[in-house]
């Protein structure tokens, strides 16, 4: 563990909590893409299948359980609890355009042709594009509430910090995880234009619709 990865995990947790609290407190999921949240729940589900078979550390196990629980709680709030505020009109990104290429690629590019490795690779590739429905929804509605922009900021920051973690681990322990790195760089690039808007425009984001 290093400071970059720890900061990344904290940033990731903060992002998830920001969104969950926003929905819970405002009792509404307006402006939130339920599709992206389903994809994130799928990312955690397919990535943490080794939760009960491989013990890394208490931290690792606890964080996996927390991420799984919070992501499913978020999906539950959107599609069940506050479903009448769910903006299905604008949450229309064709997720099959993400899932099919990601499934195909995870069969082509993986470390081992075993179910666990392919599902892990699928989750890594899927995570890099899972925010697309949310970014698409924001461009469609032409705006994002300030809390949603904070959510996106911390979510983008987490994988940027993981890139720093991979650089650090390469230089200190010669470790590198090529699939995670390539996917993580692509994922972070997708946030770049949002980061620019977030920093220059501050809170409210008006995308040129």
């Amino acid at each position: 563990m290093n400071i970059f990865r720890l900061a990344g995990d904290v940033s990731h947790l903060v992002a998830i909590l920001i969104l969950l609290m926003k929905i819970w407190r405002s009792k509404s999921c307006a402006g939130i893409s339920g599709r992206s949240q389903v994809l994130f729940a799928l990312v955690f589900t397919t990535r943490y299948l080794d939760l009960f078979t491989v013990y890394i550390s208490a931290y690792n196990t606890v964080m996996k359980v927390v991420f799984l629980a919070l992501s499913y709680a978020t999906v539950y709030l959107i599609y069940m609890r506050f479903r009448n505020s769910y903006d299905s009109e604008n949450d229309t990104f064709r997720v099959e355009f993400l899932l099919i290429p990601v499934i195909g690629l995870s069969f082509l590019e993986n470390y081992a042709f075993t179910p666990l490795e392919i599902l892990w690779t699928f989750s890594i590739f899927l995570e890099s594009v899972a925010i697309m429905p949310q970014l698409f929804m924001i461009t469609k509605t032409g705006e994002a509430e300030s809390i949603t922009t904070h959510y996106l900021f911390f979510l983008g920051l987490y994988r940027a910090l993981y890139i720093a973690n991979w650089v650090w681990r390469y230089h200190t322990e010669g470790f590198y995880d090529q699939i995670a790195i390539v996917s993580g760089v692509v994922q972070t690039i997708f946030y770049c234009d949002f980061f620019y808007l977030y920093v220059t425009r501050g809170e409210e984001i008006r995308t040129p619709s």
């Binding site: 995990d9 690792n60 470390y111 081992a112 590198y176 995880d177």
Partner: peptide, 10 residues
């Protein structure tokens, strides 16, 4: 180095 099996990152 292919990282199979034990993955210690979230």
């Amino acid at each position: 180095n292919a990282v199979t099996g034990r993955k210690d990152e979230l």
